[in-house]
Measured scan of single mutants.
Amino acid sequence: DRIFMTRTEALEFLLKAHQTAVDKIGHPSHKQTPADHAAIEALDRLLLDVRARRVDQFQINASAAQIIVTD
Rank of each mutant, 00 (worst) to 15 (best):
A42F: 14
H18Y: 15
I40E: 02
P28T: 08
V50Y: 01
A21Q: 08
L47F: 09
L46I: 05
A35T: 08
K16P: 00
A64R: 07
H30K: 07
A39R: 09
E9V: 04
H30Y: 12
I67W: 01
S29Y: 04
D1V: 02
D71E: 08
V22S: 08
L47G: 01
F58E: 00
K24T: 10
T6F: 02
R45G: 05
R7G: 02
L46T: 02
L48W: 04
K16D: 09
R7I: 12
V55A: 04
A38K: 09
K31E: 12
H37W: 14
T8G: 10
F13N: 02
V55F: 02
Q19C: 05
D49A: 08
K31P: 10
Q19T: 07
L48A: 15
H18W: 15
G26S: 14
D23Q: 11
H30Q: 07
A65W: 05
R51E: 13
T8L: 12
G26K: 15
R2V: 15
R45Y: 03
I68R: 03
T6N: 06
A17W: 08
V22N: 05
Q32G: 13
L14C: 01
R54P: 01
A39M: 15
T6V: 02
T33Q: 10
K24A: 12
T33M: 11
K31F: 10
R7Y: 14
P28M: 07
H37D: 09
F13D: 01
Q59M: 08
E41I: 12
K24R: 13
A52Q: 12
T8P: 08
P28K: 09
A38Q: 12
A21V: 09
S29V: 09
A17K: 04
A39H: 11
D36K: 04
I60W: 05
A10K: 00
L14R: 00
I67L: 02
V22I: 12
S29A: 11
V55Q: 04
A62P: 13
L47K: 02
I60C: 06
S63Y: 10
R51V: 10
K24G: 06
I3G: 01
D49P: 00
I25T: 06
R51G: 11
V50H: 01
H30C: 05
R7K: 03
E41R: 13
I25D: 04
I40Q: 03
T8H: 14
D36I: 08
L11N: 02
H18G: 03
V50W: 01
F4T: 07
R54V: 12
A35G: 11
D56G: 08
A64Y: 11
A65Q: 10
A38W: 09
E12Q: 09
A64P: 06
E9Y: 02
K16A: 13
L14I: 10
A10G: 02
T20I: 14
H27V: 09
E12V: 05
D49Y: 03
Q32R: 12
L14V: 03
Q57P: 01
D23Y: 03
R53C: 08
V69G: 01
Q19W: 05
L46E: 00
R51L: 13
D49N: 06
T20C: 06
D23K: 12
A39S: 09
R53H: 14
E9T: 03
D71A: 07
V55S: 03
I68D: 02
T20M: 15
Q57N: 11
Q19H: 06
R54C: 04
D56Q: 10
V50E: 00
